[in-house]
């Protein structure tokens, strides 16, 4: 019996420490030390409305904007309240049909040449905020044409937005939300 009493008491103490005091105190600390990150790295527009999170991708489909990766989140693409992937196996015909369909859509939008795999295959989270630098560059002609902007200017913007993380393994990539905001700024600067 003494085992049970000790177990219950010790469990209660340790739960209070690591399950209540620690997370609550930590939340208070980072709320002061890193308020922007702790609350989701949210991006606001000029009026203070939340346009999204710098870390969460968006389902961009409008012409004249850079698209992110395909998303297989439940119910709707880029469902940021229910993350998830397609889980399709490598030899599943459904996967190949989906990739072929996305390729065809990109071709219709004016993308030419070899298409980088991240642009036609869905991410693990369904919320990937990034595309590879190559995946941004292949979209440049189509985006520039839809915007009436010179291709060189848009390509330069993409390169300026590229993140080269200086950490092993990861290659240069681009945050799609940040790139599209920069694109809007560029277009606004060039309009009369």
């Amino acid at each position: 019996m003494s085992s049970w009493k000790t177990a219950i008491l010790l469990f209660a103490v340790l739960t209070a420490v690591v399950g209540v005091v620690y997370p609550v105190a930590f939340t208070l600390v980072v709320g002061v030390a890193f308020p922007f990150q702790a609350h989701g790295s949210l991006v606001m527009d000029a009026e203070g409305r939340v346009v999204g999170s710098a870390l969460i991708g968006q389902n961009v489909t409008a012409p004249g904007y850079f698209q992110g990766r395909p998303s297989a989140t439940p119910y709707t693409a880029y469902n940021a309240s229910h993350s998830g992937a397609s889980n399709l196996g490598p030899t599943n015909p459904v996967l190949l049909e989906e990739v072929a369909g996305r390729l065809a859509a990109l071709r219709d939008a004016g993308v030419t040449g070899q298409v980088p795999s991240d642009l036609v295959q869905a991410s693990g989270s369904g919320l990937d905020p990034h595309i590879s630098l190559e995946a941004a560059l292949v979209q440049v002609p189509a985006v520039a044409k839809a915007r009436g902007l010179p291709e060189e200017a848009v390509a330069a913007l993409v390169r300026a937005e590229a993140i080269d993380p200086l950490v092993p393994f990861a290659g240069p990539h681009v945050n799609v939300l940040s790139l599209n905001r920069a694109l809007d700024d560029l277009a606004a600067g060039q309009s009369p």
């Binding site: 030899t91 070899q114 298409v115 991240d118």
Partner: peptide, 18 residues
Amino acid sequence: LVTDLGVAGVSMEGKEVR
């Protein structure tokens, strides 16, 4: 099966870019 469709790079299904 995917690269034969005209796709470049490693399989990215279920993987994150970063």
